[in-house]
Structures are given as structure tokens and as C-alpha cells.
Design a protein around this nucleic acid. Structure first.
Length: 827
RNA sequence: GCGCCAGUGGCGGAAUUGGCAGACGCGCAGGGUUUAGGACCCUGUAUCCGAGAGGAUGUGUGGGUUCGAGUCCCACCUGGCGCACCA
């Protein structure tokens, strides 16, 4: 064939055309129903890798499909362009992070265009663009004003390798999630966002999200709500009586019902009252223990394996168990953390395994207060059961189950003013300070006389100086840049020093989806009207690795911005539907730059075209599942596209041999198959079943080939209708080839076409294959009319020779008829 | 340990409501076309018995419900992911 399928030239031409014609640009006053499709904000690390391509192919299919369905689709793209890798590259290679980043953005943009993904490029945002930074800082200051920002000295996670502070979310099993170095603890002045103010709402609103269940579970776990009681343990005199001149030691427990089994108490080594509550003769030991603990990683501290004898120390003091009035020893132990609850616990070894281990190691009493089942052979028992050993004159819990006893114990505390019901959350405030250059500067200055001062809104953005020297010292280069450091106090006008911390890059990705709604706004990050028009995102697409960090922060920002009046008050959630696509692996392992086993999509596109690659991505596996690169069937997909080309391109033999005139049964059958195709693909696209959609296209194409090659040959009208429908349903998946063929066939721009409808009446056949089972086994199949009566179906089944053979003269005991599909005979 | 998800041919997978298991593709085999190769077209391809007709077995394992189970229920095995001793 002279004019064979040449993907490269076709694809480049269409890609240019979509950009030149602004096909997927959309204005906020577009009259079509708004539909917002968004793929997660990519970090520009260079040309797209195969995982990116998979992600953006799914997004692009949806953009094109919804457009054909008649929606006004918002399909924006931007770049999460701040972050550590650019700065590390600068230290290593001397290339400025800005140049490094800009080059990577160009490379990634080019990749996205090469796979045929379409966006409204006008709306593009980049985190490091001063125009974007301005509004990141503006939001910081609004949060500051509203009390959602604070500064505090806090033990922070310090990564020695990266020489920076990490958020809790970036610490995985005590190791840095980027460099895998062990994370140490250090005290620093840090900026925080008060995400804990929204803990309850963030938890409650998860229920209504159309998200994968496991992501919702992960968020609930992370927020970690627990209900319990907080109460005081009075400090004991030498004789064991309670002191009234000193504040009791406050503890939090989720098991107030077990309080009678409290045989000792434990403070975190960092607890502020350690010095006060340590007796002089134990001071040296306590000090040594605290030093040891501070050097330990969080993994070691929370571990429950191994010897407990070195993991605690006696303070020399006692406290009083308010339930029993008995004085019990007060210890420090590394497994108690200052960051959760009150930083001190009541220890109940019989019902908590760590307490049990500790008690065993230190020879402390163990008293059961919940009766374990008879067959229980463990140590600490945490299950349900009747309370025992839990009674005094004023409170008797004995016999109650855990739930009832909890309530009774808490009521008792509240009635006596000893304690209160308390809800605790595991989630902690969001530490956003980073001691790094390549991030958005925190817009604060420090004045000797006026103290901490927010930068006035009209002075934003605080920009990063460009002339910076990168040294591997681990300290932010901003600390040594006089021009940046020097500022004027907005309050008194005297010289002041600028904050050198920059923001965590998760700040940038926490509101970019709002900026996309109104990217040209010069007066605000976005208008409430624009946000109201587009948000929430109708379909968000990304990796499950962002299940906690990014998605939780973005939810927090959206709620806070709505409460501050920047976003519509009704906008409580940013992403109504979330789809998490699986990862692309190689040989069962992870693909990574360091392993040097990255698959380069560009090389594949050069060889077989972007459409074949897209089709292979869609075909290989259900989108939600991880997939191995070795399983991709690029060749089969390329072969299929060639088959379609030969079928649909005008001027081929297939096309010119078509007959005209009356329609035959074969024509009716192909017409029916065409409607089935549209029906199937519509359903498959709607439910993200792209692999079966591709199978449907292939099956249909095979059927049309058979039809064309049949003796009587194809009818021109039937063939035209079949092929045009095929191209239309393929358009969202393989936009270049279907666009090219549709145009060559003289029908104009396929992407401006409405989604094809189908006639339900045409889906039904006149006959159906009826299956006949004897004792559950298929014994015969008979073609019957679809409207056959049950009685006729039964008679037909019994008349079957095969059925009679298997009945072997016996009488059927029971016959189940599901006409016209099935007759089941029990012999 | 707790929670979630998955397990189907040589391989990736399909089976939307309990009703023909293995669609579609890859791979493999045979044939056609071609000077040849490639490309293309056609046919076959779960396992076992059988020349064939046909039969038996079969969706991780073991039970159960049902006329009928890949699908529902119970117990278990294996793998992946999350949480993990947060009081």
C-alpha cells in the first residue's frame, strides 16, 4: 500500500494542530456542563517515564471522552517545581536549580505532547513561578492571620543525609523516605500549619468521598482518632499519701476501665516535669538515660522486641492511683512519646503488652482487671471480658464488659473532678519549615524591637535571590545571602532580618488545583466564583503513594480556604472522585533511575507511535493494578492499528469493492455488532475498564474483517457506518490515528464529534443459544427464538437427543427453565 | 498481630445480576501469499483419555448453600499493600 500507516508524521501533525487551534482550551464562561479532570501535579524530573505515561494516558482518555460526551472539560497541567532534587543537583553539578528545573519542565512538557495528552496550556502553573509563589505566601499570611500558623520549638525529624528537617509523613520506619538515612531528633524553631484544628472534620468527611476504600482507610488510620479519659495522678508523699501542693501528673488512656490494674506510671524522657519529679539520688541515672534516649531512633524506641531492662529508669518518686489510693512508682521509659497524649501514661501490664514487658523487666506488680477466656495463654490480654479486681467503696466495675466499664470509670472521674472524657488524634500539626533554598520563602521578617512580623501583602512575593552559591554544608544558602537577609520592619521601619526557612513543597501542591480554575487572577489566588464553577475536581488521577501526605494536606487547605472566605463556603472537599492507578514495574522489581532500568517511552513512540503505546497501556491490565513492563504487548497493539488503518483508509481494495443495493442478513448482523460495540465501550469507559474496551475494539475489527472478506462482500453503507463508529469509540484512546482516518474519510474533526449513541432496540437478537444442562452439566445447545415460552423451551430441551441419552430412560425429577438462555434438568 | 486487596491456560487477563469458564491479546503450531525474508491473511491452541464421535477433570486448599458456584457463606494456604504496638 503506497499510503501506509505512518504514525510519526500523523502524530506530530495532530499534536501541533491541537495546540495551534487551542482545541482543549476552555474558558470559564463556556456554556457546556463543567467537568474537571486532573492528574496529580508532577514533579519535573526530566522526560516522562513509563509510569507518567500510564497516568497521563488515563487522564487524556477521560478528557477526550468527556469532551465527546458534550462536557466543557477543564484539563490543566502544571509542575511541582520546587524541591530537593534540583538543589542537590545544583550542589553536585553547579547548575542553578532554576535552570535545572526549567530544562526538566521543558523535557516533561515535550513528553506529554508526544504521547498526545492535551491540556489548556494557557492555564499552566509552576510552583517556582513568582506569580504562583506570591499566592502561596498570600495563603500563608491569611492562615497566619487566622491563627492557623504558629511557630514553636519542637523536636524535629532531622535527616543527616539530606541535612534537613522532615515531616512525620516523610519518615518511614525511622528512615528518610528519600535517602533512607536514619532520622535523628533535634530541637529547632519551626513553622507549623495547624491541621489538627481540622482533624475531626477531615475524618468525618472521608465517608462521603468517592475514593478507593484503602485510601480512605489509610487516611482514617493516619488521623488516628481515639476516645479515652485524661486524668491526674497525684504526686505521693514519702508515706504514700497524695500531695495537694503539687499539680498531679496528667495521663491519657483509652482504657480507663483497667485503671485498677495500674501498678506503675511512666513519663516520656522529654517530659517537661522530669527534673521536678526526679529525686536527687536518682538524678544522675535519669540524666544518663535521657541522653541515651535522645540518641535513639524512633524505630528503636517504638520497637517491642528485645530486652526492656535498659529502656527505662526509676525516678525515685511515686504517684497515687486515684482509683485505689495506692502509691505506685514513677518511671521514665523510651517507648512513651512526648508528642502523643499528655506524654505520660498509667501503666497497666495485665492489659498492655509493652507495659507487661516493662513490668517483667523491672519486677513490677501485674494485676489482671479483665478476665481473659479460659483458653487464653498469652501475656497481656487486650480483648473483651468481665472486669475483675476492680472495686472500691466508691466504684465497682466488677462484672462489667469493657465498654460499660470504660463509661463507668470515666463517669466516676468526671463526677469527682479528677478527669475528663478526651478525644485524642494521632495526626500532628504540619511542620512546613525547610532549611533549604529551592522552595517558597516564608514571608516573615524578624525585627529587634517589634519581633516577628508578617510581610505586608502588597510586598509579595518574597522572591528567591538568583546569585547563590551552593555548598555541601547542609545549611541553607539563604543564611549567607546579605541581600536576601536584609529587610525592613513593616511595623517600625527599622532594619530587620528575613526568615530563611522555605516551605515544604507539599504546600505548593495543596492548592494548585484551585489556581487552575482561575490562573490569570491578579487580585487573588483564585476567585470564589471560578472555584465554585470548576471545583470539586470531578476526577482526580494519581498514584496511591500520595494517599496520605498530599491528599490530606490538600483537603485541609480546601477546608481552611473555604472557612477564610477565599473559596466558596460550600467547598468542603477538593477531589470528589479519586482514581489511583497502579505502578509500572520491571521484572517484579521497581524501576528507578539509580538502577538504570528505566523504560524510555520516547524510543517506543519513535518506533511504533504514541497511539500504539497508549493502546498497549490501556490493554495490558486493569488501570488500578500494578503492571510489569515485560507484559506489555506493544507489537500486538501496533498490528491492530495497522489492521484498522487498512480497513478504514480510503482508496484501499477493501473499501472500493463494497457493494450497494439491498441489505442482507450479514449487513444486519454487522449493524447490530456496531451498536453492541458502542454500548460496550461506553460502559467500559465509564467504569475505567479500559482493557476490556480495547478487547471490544479488536473483536469488532475481527468481525468486520470477516464480513468484508465474506463471499458476498460488504455493503458500502453498512461498512461505512461500522468503520466510522469504530473510529469514534477509538478516538479517546488513540486520538491521532482515529483523527487522521476520520478526516481522510471526509468527515471532519473526530474530536469535535458527539459521542455515538446506540439504539437499544438493535442490541437484541432474534435468536439466542439455549444451554441445556442435565445434573448441572451442559449436554446440548439449541438456537431458539428469544421470546420462546418456558413450556416450549422445556419441551425442546426434553426432545434433545443428547439430553435423552443422559437421562438414560429415567424421568426428570425437576426442571428449571430460564428461557431463552437455559434449561436445567435434574435426573 | 490487626485491616484491606488479590490468587483463573505457557503468559497478561475476560466472565456487569449465581446460568456455556478461558473473551481479547501475547506466545506457540499448521496452512496460504511472497523470488526470499518481513509484513499480511486463514485455521488451531486448558488438561487428560480417545483415530473420531464423545467423555472425564478443571478457576489457591478443604468444607458448605444451590437444580447450578470463578462468583455467595465458613475455615485455611500463598502473595501484595497499609497499620503496628500512639497509651
Amino acid at each position: 500500500m503506497a499510503d501506509g500507516y505512518d504514525p510519526t508524521s500523523i502524530e506530530l501533525r495532530w499534536q501541533q494542530r491541537w495546540i495551534d487551534e487551542g482545541t482543549y482550551e476552555i474558558d470559564n464562561d463556556d456554556p457546556r456542563p463543567p467537568y474537571y479532570v486532573l492528574s496529580m501535579y508532577p514533579y519535573p524530573s526530566g522526560p516522562a517515564h513509563i509510569g507518567h505515561v500510564r497516568n497521563y494516558t488515563f487522564g487524556d482518555l477521560l478528557v477526550r471522552y468527556r469532551t465527546m460526551q458534550g462536557d466543557g472539560v477543564l484539563s490543566p497541567i502544571g509542575f511541582d517545581s520546587f524541591g530537593l532534587p534540583a538543589e542537590n543537583a545544583a550542589i553536585q553539578s553547579g547548575m542553578h536549580p532554576r535552570e535545572h528545573t526549567d530544562a526538566n519542565i521543558e523535557a516533561l512538557s515535550s513528553s506529554l505532547r508526544r504521547i498526545g495528552a492535551v491540556y489548556d496550556w494557557r492555564r499552566q502553573v509552576k510552583s517556582h513561578d513568582p506569580d504562583y509563589m506570591k499566592w502561596s505566601q498570600w495563603i500563608f499570611l491569611k492562615f497566619y492571620e487566622a491563627g492557623l500558623v504558629f511557630r514553636d520549638t519542637a523536636p524535629v525529624n532531622w535527616c543527616r543525609g539530606c541535612q534537613t528537617v522532615l515531616a512525620n509523613e516523610q519518615v518511614i520506619d525511622g528512615l528518610c523516605d528519600r535517602s533512607s538515612d536514619p532520622v535523628e531528633r533535634r530541637d529547632m524553631e519551626q513553622w507549623f500549619y495547624k491541621i489538627t484544628d481540622y482533624a475531626q472534620e477531615l475524618l468525618d468527611d472521608i465517608d462521603d468521598l468517592d475514593w478507593p476504600e484503602r485510601v480512605k482507610i489509610m487516611q482514617r488510620n493516619w488521623i488516628g482518632r481515639s476516645e479515652g479519659a485524661e486524668f491526674g495522678l497525684p504526686i505521693a508523699e514519702a508515706d504514700g499519701s497524695a500531695r495537694t501542693d503539687v499539680e498531679p501528673l496528667s495521663v491519657y488512656t483509652t482504657r480507663p476501665d483497667t485503671s485498677f490494674g495500674m501498678t506503675f506510671a511512666v513519663m516520656a524522657p522529654e517530659h517537661p516535669r522530669v527534673d521536678e519529679l526526679t529525686s536527687p539520688e536518682h538524678a544522675a541515672e535519669v540524666a544518663a538515660f535521657r541522653t541515651d534516649t535522645s540518641a535513639k531512633s524512633e524505630v528503636d524506641r517504638l520497637s517491642t522486641v528485645g530486652d526492656f531492662t535498659k529502656r527505662g529508669v526509676f525516678t525515685g518518686s511515686h504517684v497515687v492511683n486515684p482509683f485505689t489510693g495506692v502509691a505506685i512508682p514513677l518511671y521514665l521509659a523510651d517507648y512513651v512519646l512526648t508528642t502523643y497524649g499528655t506524654g505520660a501514661i498509667m501503666a497497666v501490664p495485665a492489659q498492655d503488652q509493652r507495659d507487661w514487658d516493662f513490668a517483667t523487666a523491672y519486677g513490677l506488680d501485674i494485676v489482671r482487671t479483665v478476665q481473659p477466656p479460659d483458653d487464653f495463654d498469652g501475656e497481656a490480654y487486650t480483648g473483651d471480658g468481665p472486669a475483675i479486681n476492680s472495686a472500691t467503696d466508691s466504684l465497682d466495675l466488677n462484672g462489667m464488659g469493657v465498654t460499660e466499664a470504660k463509661a463507668a470509670a470515666t463517669d466516676w472521674l468526671e463526677q469527682r473532678d479528677l478527669g475528663v472524657r478526651k478525644v485524642n488524634f494521632r495526626i500532628r500539626d504540619w511542620l512546613l519549615s525547610r532549611q533549604r533554598y529551592w522552595g517558597c520563602p516564608i514571608p516573615i521578617v524578624y525585627c529587634e524591637s517589634c519581633g516577628e512580623q508578617p510581610v505586608p501583602l502588597d510586598e509579595l512575593p518574597v522572591e528567591l535571590p538568583h546569585d547563590i552559591e551552593f555548598l555541601p554544608t547542609g545549611q541553607s544558602p539563604l543564611l549567607f545571602h546579605e541581600g536576601f537577609l536584609t529587610a525592613t520592619c513593616p511595623s517600625c521601619g527599622e532594619p530587620a532580618r528575613r526568615e530563611t526557612d522555605t516551605m515544604d513543597t507539599f504546600v505548593d501542591s495543596s492548592w494548585y488545583f484551585l489556581r487552575f480554575a482561575d490562573p490569570f487572577n491578579h487580585d487573588a489566588p483564585f476567585s470564589a466564583e471560578a472555584a465554585d464553577h470548576w471545583l470539586p475536581v470531578d476526577q482526580y488521577i494519581g498514584g496511591v503513594e500520595h494517599a496520605i501526605l498530599h491528599l490530606l494536606y490538600a483537603r485541609f487547605f480546601t477546608k481552611a480556604l473555604a472557612d477564610l472566605g477565599a473559596a466558596p463556603a460550600t467547598l468542603r472537599e477538593p477531589f470528589q472522585r479519586l482514581f489511583t492507578q497502579g505502578m509500572v514495574r520491571l521484572g517484579g522489581g521497581r524501576m528507578s533511575k539509580s538502577k538504570g532500568n528505566l523504560v524510555a517511552p520516547e524510543a517506543i513512540i519513535d518506533e511504533v507511535g504514541a497511539d500504539a503505546l497508549r493502546l498497549a497501556i490501556l490493554q495490558v491490565k486493569p488501570p488500578a493494578e500494578d503492571v510489569d513492563w515485560e507484559d506489555f504487548q506493544i507489537e500486538g497493539c501496533s498490528r491492530f492499528l495497522n489492521r484498522v488503518w487498512r480497513l478504514a483508509a480510503p482508496g484501499t481494495d477493501l473499501f472500493s469493492s463494497a457493494r450497494t443495493g439491498d441489505l442482507t442478513d450479514a449487513d444486519v448482523e454487522i449493524d447490530r455488532a456496531t451498536h453492541v460495540l458502542i454500548d460496550r465501550i461506553t460502559g467500559d469507559y465509564d467504569r475505567w475498564s479500559y482493557n476490556t474496551a480495547v478487547a471490544a475494539m479488536m473483536e469488532f475489527t475481527n468481525a468486520v474483517y470477516k464480513y468484508v472478506q465474506s463471499e458476498q462482500g460488504p455493503h458500502r453503507d453498512t461498512l461505512d457506518a461500522a468503520v466510522d463508529a469504530l473510529l469514534r469509540v477509538m478516538a479517546p484512546a488513540v486520538p491521532h490515528i482515529s483523527g487522521e482516518l476520520f478526516e481522510l474519510r471526509g468527515h471532519g474533526d473526530i474530536h469535535a464529534q458527539p459521542w455515538p449513541g446506540f439504539d437499544p432496540a438493535k442490541l437484541v437478537t432474534s435468536t439466542e443459544t439455549m444451554v441445556i444442562q442435565v445434573n448441572g452439566k451442559v449436554r446440548d445447545k439449541i438456537d431458539v427464538a428469544v421470546d420462546i415460552s418456558d413450556a416450549d423451551a422445556e419441551a425442546l430441551a426434553l426432545a434433545s437427543e443428547a439430553v435423552q441419552r443422559h437421562l438414560d430412560g429415567g424421568e426428570p425429577r425437576k426442571i428449571i427453565v430460564r428461557a431463552p438462555k437455559l434449561v436445567s434438568i435434574v435426573a
